[in-house]
Structures are given as C-alpha cells and as structure tokens.
Design a protein around this nucleic acid. Structure first.
Lengths: 237, 237
DNA sequence: CGGCGTCATTGATCGGGATCAAAAACGTCA
DNA sequence: TGACGTTTTTGATCCCGATCAATGACGCCG
C-alpha cells in the first residue's frame, strides 16, 4: 500500500463556483448555509492510483467527489477483489455506522474531492434535517443500485454483464444533450472484470466479440456505441 | 401472481408491547411520540407465500417487520430470480426515491408487519429528525450488507458461498444467550440458491458435502453447526 | 530510436457449477 | 393408509468462463 500523494489547495475554494454544486449533497443548502459550509470542506487532489481511504480505516472524513473517477472495492484475504462501484462527481463517500470505512477507494486518473472532517460535518448536519434528508436520499439511491448490481453478479451471463455495464456507464455520463455515443472508459479491463465478477480475459474477449458483431467499436480509452438497440437487447436478456 | 390473503387485526395494537420496539425504527422515539406513532401503523398478517409488495408497484406504505421472515428479490424478464436479502423482525422496508418499490417481498412462513401509510409516515417524520437519522442508519447498514453480498456473489466459490450464508444467517438469529448452534432455515433450497447466485442442485450438493465432512448436520427445517471453526475457515477462504 | 514494463488481446485447455434426468423424501389430503 | 404433488437429493453430462500461456500494443524514459 503506497502512501497517498495528495495536494491540498493552499487557497480557499468557493462552493458558488463548484462544478457539482447543484447535484451533490450541497444542493439541499441555501445560500447562507453554503457560505458556512464553505469553511468546513477543503479541496484535495489525488493522482492516478492514489488510495483515498482504505477498508477498515477509521473514518475521519467524508468526501464529496468534484472531478474524476474512483473505484470502490473490497478485497478478500487472498487478494480477490470485488469492485462495488465507481464514484463520479457528485457522489458522497464516507457514510457508515461502524466508524470504519467498509470499502477502499482509489483514484482512477486525477481526482479532486471536497473533504470534510467527520466531527465538524456531524455538527453542521445536526440541526439541518434537510441536509440529512438529502444524504438519506443518496444512500437509498445507492442501495437501489447495489441491488441491481447483485442481480448482475448473481444471475447474468458474461455477455449480459458487459453489455449492461457499458449501457449503465454511458447512462451515468449523460450530458445536458443526452447520452454520449462514444463512451470513455477510464478504468482498466481488470477494473471492469472485478466490477462484473469476471476475469480480464473474459472481459477482453467479450469486447472483441461485441466489436465483431458491430455493436461497439473499441477506441482508445473507451468504446463507441454503434448499435445501442442491440446492446440493450443483450443487456435485457 | 396470486392476490395476497391478508388479515388486518380488528383491534388496535400497542407499541408498548411490541416485540421489536427496542430494535426497529421505533427505538428512536420517546414515550410521547410512541403514543402518537401507534395510531399511524396497523398490524397486518400475511400467510406463507403471500406477496407483501411487488417490484415496480407504486409505494403506498412502509413496513416494519414484527415477526416472521421475508424474501426480498428481483426478477429478470425471463424468470431468473436474485434474492437480494431476507428480512427479519426489526427490518424496515419500503424506502425508495423513485416512488416505486425496487424489489418484491414475499412472506416465508407466517409474517406480521406494522404497516404505515406513506403520506402519514412522511408527515410524522417531517419534524422528527431523530427518526430520520434512525432510518438513515438502517439504510447505511443495509448498504454495507449489500456490498458484502456483492463480494459473495462476484468473487466466491459455491462452498464459500454456502458456508458464508450459514454463518451469516446464524449471526442474524443471535439471542441474548449468543448464536444458536442449531440454525433454523425457514427458506427453501431454491431461495438459498437464488440468494447465493447458484442452482438448487449445487446448494443441495454442498449441504451434503458439508455434512459428510462433519461441519454441519442436516436436520428438519434447518441445520446443526457441528464445527463452527471449520465453517468459518471455509467462509473466510 | 530502442528497450522495457504494463496492459490488452488471443489461443489452448481445464474444471466448477449448470443442466438434464431420475429417484428419494416429505407433506397433504381423500 | 395410500396416492399424489412438491421439494430435495443424487447421478451423468455438458458448457461457460477460469486458468495457463504466449503474443501484441502502448507508453515512458534513456
């Protein structure tokens, strides 16, 4: 486990010009609250591959992802890894009841987070039930995603898993002008394999197969969705 | 989908003599609140196999399990089923953000729930942040369980899955005097298979194997844990 | 430009768990 | 008690995805 090389921005930051202001937990705060909130968090940068926090670490902070992608995963004693999700800007990390993180989080590419000290954040939330409500909503949404993921892992074939992953990932990258046809995949094949409960070879083979069938085109750093309808059909089963 | 045959208790019920009073969401309420809360919920009985609610149904109620066991599951269009969890007394069901349940719930054996109309419950919670906090805790705990389940489904062998299930189930049935050595299994082999992402045949074979190895003894309606240590070893990998 | 480390792809083979099939155990009810 | 439906167990075989192995494609830095 190499130590995280992080950079803390020396100058203050401003919520008002924050990229995820409308989407993240902060969306539940009014202007006055946002001002106070500003002093609680600090922007922290992580480089590609850095570990932001580890499973079993005592939780000292909450994190609001501002930019970049993170892999969230659990390890078995013998090294097997299950990626339980990918975090994108707007995602809120660090909630738990045991006082310890129950998964690890690495940066995939450069990542910026808004980091909050647990105690200060806890105090801030205490008398702001609307923020608590917002956090609860995020937790419930994640729970729903987690259950979908269980179905994927437990009951779908390799082809279905890969097709579902590509469509699901595309849908998480929707821009104001709809879902992109060219889907960037910043994570490695190994990451995708560990997310889907497959091996890297099976993922690679399935990508090649989809390409030969004209469903996708494999491009540098991602794929191009040539035939979304057929991909949907494969994913739906 | 057969219609649920339910019985609504004609007489009122009292939170004060409720079996799950200390464990469930209600544990966050004081005596005065509990009195008011009493009028919101009504006890409802379900028979074995009844569907309490279905995936995609519009959510009209929340449920607090009082007694019995429920299977929570999602179905694929072609009939494949993934059980995402089993609900026990004290579990709180019905939270979602889409306005629809995102899984179905059946009674396994006789079940009693405390049912709350969504709107009334929503109003009650509005100015009681401690109840919201309690619900949030339950959601976060479930999220943690869901992630553990993902590891199970994605990265473990059949033997490990079955051993982990038996130990995990036993631990959920802890009594004041510790975990029982004889573990009741009210759910069918098919349910266990759908929970673990296996087939019924594999589950049955694994049970037999564990029995031949002297780890468990298969008894009527459950198993007896003869060698917990060895079961732990199998589960840990 | 070339050497090297990392990651992705492709091929050959293996095996765990699925599938197909049948028998056994169990519960229910006439 | 016995016939029948359901659930569980056991057996035989198959196949999808894992494993083992090699090659290919990149990126990085001298």
């Amino acid at each position: 486990m190499k130590p995280s090389v992080v950079t803390i921005e020396p100058n203050g930051h401003f919520c008002s010009d924050c990229a995820v202001r409308g989407a993240a937990v902060c969306s539940s705060l009014n202007t006055a609250e946002l001002r106070e909130f500003e002093h609680l968090g600090r922007r922290v940068h992580f480089d590609s591959g850095d570990t932001v926090f580890s499973e079993e670490d005592i939780t000292t902070s909450f994190y609001n992802v501002l930019e970049g992608v993170m892999r969230l995963y659990k390890l078995l004693p013998d090294g097997r890894r299950q990626i339980v999700g990918f975090a994108l800007p707007g995602d809120f990390l660090g909630m738990n009841i045991s006082g310890r993180h129950n998964f690890s989080a690495d940066a995939i590419g450069v990542v910026t987070v808004c980091q909050f000290a647990k105690a200060a954040f806890g105090r801030f939330i205490e008398d702001r039930p609307h923020l608590l409500k917002r956090i609860n909503e995020l937790a419930i949404r994640e729970l729903s995603q987690a259950r979908d993921h269980m179905v994927l892992l437990g009951r779908r074939s390799a082809d279905e898993k890969v097709a579902t992953f590509l469509l699901g990932w595309r849908d998480r990258l929707v821009t104001p002008k709809g879902p992109p046809d060219t889907v960037p995949l910043p994570m490695s094949r190994q990451d995708i394999a560990d997310y889907l409960g497959l091996t890297i070879e099976t993922v690679s083979r399935t990508f090649t197969k989809l390409e030969r069938q004209g469903v996708i085109e494999i491009i540098h750093g991602g794929i191009s969705l040539l035939d979304p309808a057929r991909a949907e059909a494969m994913a739906a089963a």
